[in-house]
């Protein structure tokens, strides 16, 4: 579904990601884990086209891709309904289709629809995050990438979002979730990718008995291999 090969990105003298190679399996929820500054967001920004890799390549197996950044921001002069209208139009949805979908998704992520008439910039951070989910759900993505999916959300919304991820997976969608909240990711993830100091440390599949937190800490204690990383074997949980 998403295949990245030897991605490298430098910011001046700093090598943010180096030789990053991974695959995200279709129909699975993949947890993308790493410490602060490990390079998770850089990788996500490369595959979504907001950053250009210095080298390496990636390919998508679908054209309908959703993306939620860690801290969503919106045009200060547009209201929620205007942004949804623009999103729907850019993804080829009709106005009525979009309105019906928006109502349904508002309910599912416990977002107050009356907020849609206000400028999104005036929303609380939590509501901005919910609105970003709403915007992405509207396009019905085959592949959804979420950077810090639970940040700024209250416990009720976290549960709603978690349920939503499982619903999307049940509908055959693919998700790539990058987060520090391992315990929340563990509840929904099928696979994991661990990154440290800009290099992929491990990629594997979770079984019913896997403990993602233990896996993460075990791998995080290791130092990444040399400058040119080899394809990593599937780690057994």
């Amino acid at each position: 579904m998403l295949s990245a090969e030897r991605l490298t990105k430098r910011f001046g003298a700093v090598e943010a990601v180096s030789d990053v190679t991974f695959k995200v399996r279709r129909g699975a929820i993949t947890a993308f884990l790493g410490e602060n500054g490990a390079g998770k967001t850089t990788v996500l920004k490369i595959v979504t086209g907001f950053l250009k890799p210095d080298s390496g390549r990636f390919s998508w197996g679908t054209r309908k891709i959703g993306y939620l950044p860690e801290r969503p921001a919106f045009f200060s002069w547009l209201s929620g309904s205007e942004i949804l209208r623009a999103t729907a139009r850019s993804f080829g949805l009709s106005k009525s289709e979009a309105a019906a979908e928006a109502d349904e998704f508002c309910r599912r992520i416990s977002f107050d629809p009356s907020l849609l008439n206000r400028k999104v910039q005036t929303y609380s951070p939590g509501n901005q995050k919910k609105f970003a989910y709403l915007q992405n759900l509207l396009i019905r993505p085959d592949f959804l990438i979420v950077d810090e999916p639970f940040s700024a959300l209250d416990p009720i919304a976290i549960r709603a979002v978690r349920d939503l991820f499982l619903e999307l997976k049940a509908g055959g969608k693919t998700l790539l979730l990058s987060s520090h909240l391992i315990s929340e990711l563990e509840k929904v993830s099928d696979e994991y990718i661990i990154i440290k100091s800009g290099r992929i440390l491990a990629q594997g599949t979770l079984s019913a008995h896997s403990d993602l937190e233990t896996i993460f800490f075990n791998f995080s204690a290791k130092e990444p291999s040399g400058a040119v990383s080899k394809p990593l074997p599937r780690a057994s949980p």
């Binding site: 979504t48 907001f50 891709i65 993306y67 939620l68 950044p69 623009a86 850019s90």
Partner: peptide, 18 residues
């Protein structure tokens, strides 16, 4: 201001469409 506010980092502008 649009670049630095982060509002271009949106699903509408993915794939370099910003």
């Amino acid at each position: 201001d649009e670049v630095h506010s982060g509002c271009l980092e949106n699903v509408i502008f993915m794939g370099g469409r910003f």
